[in-house]
Design a protein around this nucleic acid. Structure first.
Lengths: 333, 333
DNA sequence: TTGTACGCGTTATCAC
DNA sequence: GTGATAACGCGTACAA
């Protein structure tokens, strides 16, 4: 459709200008190939004059690797997700790969197919659960597949998860340690695997202590949903005194509503714990005690999996630690 | 390096399984090509069995278009930038393109070269100022170049800018309308073109009214820098009563410090205006009056430029409107 | 409608 | 160290 546009410079043109063969040009740009200093100079000079850049599309055709790693995600403008993506993009770039970002909110299927169309070396799925058949297709085609925080029992792909259970358990201990007895949990209706794991684990651990947990789930995983949760939970006189919000965004909305609409003091009358350690959690209006996933470690692990020599592809399953960052929303005893 | 991995299915294999020629396969996946219903069926069936997906890399070799659009940016985890990127990724995807994200904070040069290596149809530069020579190279190679909010006078590429001057002027009018007389502006030391334009325009407009503006610039464009700005500005007894923060992030930090460290009431003792309309600006702790760039319109314009038939490439220069969203941080008179 | 042959820009292999 | 040649997976002009 857009045919009549200027074409990119090719190695052939460089070779002609430099008065050498095309292979000489290729060798010049291949690390570890043997070229004489003389020809090298002439090639470099010619390419700069012409603005030549090696065509990675053509190179990817020959080699088995395109250098592309796809990031499939939804809600990419969420503080947590955008941090994740940034870390992945940076780490991949430093490892000599490039990141292609696909939005999966509209259509996970389509996104994953794009992944195959572009012969990505690996695909990282951050949101959405792709159908098992497509997963198989990716794997069968030799494309590495890395699932983040999908606690589903899909076999084949690598699985990296945050230690949601461990965090939920630590949240409970922290709240109990602060003297909380009337526990609650704020969740959304998203039903994401990691969110549901946090909820279940927290409730189960509380049951072991003989305590019941009031659970509320509202709308999307957003600030507003947190505020809504507060309105649901705090209108009764015997309101909770210890709340685990499965996401910082929920926690921020919850706290704002608790303070401004119900006049509660945090942490004196109400202790709150979040999850994600988004930037806002550190803001002085919140100073939220929360779990801080080691995103850098996760990104490092992803790069490792995405770049490793393709051999026996056993399905890895890693758990990333999530330390608790104590700020000012849980009473110190 | 990773040779011994399973290879992707090729059209050849599909052709063999379906018992047709390779061109038949190619035609099946080319919209508007003439294939009989019979062969079409057999090809589709065979490709599904083999999990075949057209190789866009090879296709990009033939056609003039790779379908790839590069997004070059820094600070991609900032609320504003991540919203921008999300909109662009979505819009491009809907237009049948894919987005490749390059981090430019380390090395703008390298990022832009990657852009050429992957034969991107277009490149969108969201941060950083690439050297003019590289810009020329991109253009000469027929790669469309779209600069966002770079008010530099670079010729050649398309330029999309928010109406920073208009917004600064509107900010001044709003503050004057609220009865403010002691004006200040909070900026960072980043020196980004758009930020500097907002500052200059605000100061100039104020001068026309015979008013002086106290300007403070601190650190990066962040929450902390805003808090720092507050400490600089509010320690004197005759502190400002109307402040334009060139970014919402700065405004949030400024407000928190103003309220918590100086005990000021907003908007009664102090009016504040921000810029970007990040999500947090709407949170009930801030309710910030701010400028809300029409990101969707901008993304739409970008897609238009990135996908248009390549003809006479005149350097476009568009201004995107930035309406003021009135919330609760400017006193109503 | 279908198949054959060629070219897109690379790199790897092989003689020289 | 260098240049010819084959091959990668695909689209398409051409002939059938």
């Amino acid at each position: 459709m857009d045919k009549p546009r200027k074409a990119f410079t090719s190695a052939k043109q460089v070779a002609e200008l430099a008065g050498v063969s095309r292979s000489a040009v290729s060798r010049t740009f291949t690390p570890g190939a043997s070229v004489s200093e003389e020809t090298r100079k002439r090639v470099i000079s010619a390419s700069e004059k012409l603005g030549y850049h090696v065509n990675h599309l053509a190179r990817g055709l020959l080699r088995q690797s395109s250098g592309i790693v796809c990031l499939v995600a939804a809600d990419t403008d969420t503080p947590y997700m955008s941090r994740m993506i940034r870390m992945l993009v940076r780490s991949l770039q430093q490892a000599g790969k490039v990141a292609m970002v696909l939005e999966s909110s509209e259509n996970v299927d389509h996104a994953l197919r794009q992944t195959l169309n572009y012969r990505a070396d690996a695909t990282v799925v951050l949101s959405g659960t792709p159908p098992q058949s497509l997963i198989r297709t990716c794997l069968d085609n030799g494309q590495r597949l890395i699932l983040i925080n999908r606690d589903d029992q899909l076999s084949g792909p690598h699985n990296l998860s945050l230690d949601n259970r461990g965090a939920a358990s630590a949240a409970l201990r922290a709240l109990l340690g602060a003297g909380c007895r009337r526990l609650a949990l704020v969740n959304s209706e998203a039903g994401t695997p990691s969110l549901m794991t946090r909820e279940r684990a927290f409730v189960e651990e509380a049951e072991k202590e003989g305590l019941e947990v009031v659970v509320t789930r509202n709308g999307h995983t957003s600030y507003e949903a947190g505020a809504l949760g507060a309105r649901r939970l705090l209108s009764s006189r015997e309101h909770p005194d210890g709340v685990f919000c499965v996401t910082d965004l929920l926690a921020c909305g919850f706290m704002d509503a608790a303070r401004q609409e119900f006049g509660l003091t945090i942490p004196d009358q109400l202790s709150v714990i979040g999850f994600d350690d988004i930037e806002q959690a550190g803001w002085s209006s919140y100073r939220l005690t929360t779990f801080s996933p080691n995103v850098a470690a996760l990104a490092g692990r992803v790069v490792e999996l995405a770049t490793m020599a393709g051999g026996a592809e056993e399905s890895h399953r890693d758990l990333i630690e999530v330390p608790l960052v104590r700020r000012d929303t849980v009473r110190q005893s």
